[in-house]
């Protein structure tokens, strides 16, 4: 009887709490990686629209991070903007406006990076979202998926992506892809293999006008 009472009390206390260190299975975490290498920076205007769309879609309690992919992306310094939306809708709206403004400023002043460390960015996203203890974890990679690492950088590790959904957005075809389309297909297939082997769900979205493309 006593154990039963303790159990009920615990359930009530934890059930009514804000979560604390508990994983809130209804909260979503979105980590968007923006490729800033080479000529891909020209594509960032599209990324801005995606960010605004996601901002409109996210609800109080959700986490949203936008980070850049540069020569060494496994770093908190590459985070452009991050927000945990407040429980009050009015405050959340204010946060969304500020977030949007920050991203606009970034896109307006972005400088191209010499290398493209996508793996480091994904690892950073995994670390961040695991720490955020959100229920549903989404990583969007706004890139052509062409990784170009500086010398001595090691990125031959496996990802741990259990419970993650990874989607590559706007995977543009490079000049070399037109010469040999197999390169493009192999590039996408490699990333798919890495994500699926890590336990995640993989998807590629090139048609950003589709209504359900960015559904969380």
């Amino acid at each position: 009887m006593r154990n039963w009472l303790v159990g009920v009390m615990s359930l009530l206390l934890f059930g009514c709490s804000d979560g604390g260190q508990q994983i809130n299975s209804y909260q979503r975490g979105v980590y968007l990686l923006l490729d800033t290498s080479g000529t891909y920076t020209e594509e960032l205007v599209k990324a801005k629209q995606i960010i605004n769309y996601l901002l409109a879609y996210l609800e109080p309690g959700d986490t949203f991070v936008v980070a850049r992919i540069d020569s060494a992306s496994f770093s908190e310094k590459d985070i452009v903007a991050k927000v945990i939306l407040d429980a009050r809708p009015s405050t959340a709206n204010k946060q969304k406006r500020e977030f949007s403004q920050t991203v606009n400023d970034f896109v307006a002043n972005v400088k191209s990076s010499a290398y493209t460390d996508i793996s480091g960015g994904v690892l950073q996203a995994i670390e961040y979202l695991n720490e955020a203890r959100v229920g549903r974890k989404h990583i969007f990679i706004f890139s052509d998926l062409k990784e170009d690492l500086p010398a001595n950088f090691k990125r031959d590790f496996d990802f741990t992506l259990d419970g993650f959904t990874v989607r590559a957005l706007n995977v543009t075809k490079l000049r070399s892809d037109n010469v040999d389309p197999k390169e493009y297909l192999e590039r996408v297939a490699d990333w798919q293999a890495r994500v699926v082997q890590g336990g995640g769900t993989w998807g590629v979205i090139n048609d950003l006008d589709r209504a359900d493309a960015l559904a969380l």
Binding site: G15, C16, G19, Y26, P60, L85, A87, P89
Partner: peptide, 16 residues
């Protein structure tokens, strides 16, 4: 329901 979220918050859930 919507204005109540402004008062008690919309993030916390009880039983989903």
């Amino acid at each position: 329901a919507l204005p109540m979220s402004e008062m008690v918050g919309a993030a916390a859930r009880v039983g989903g």
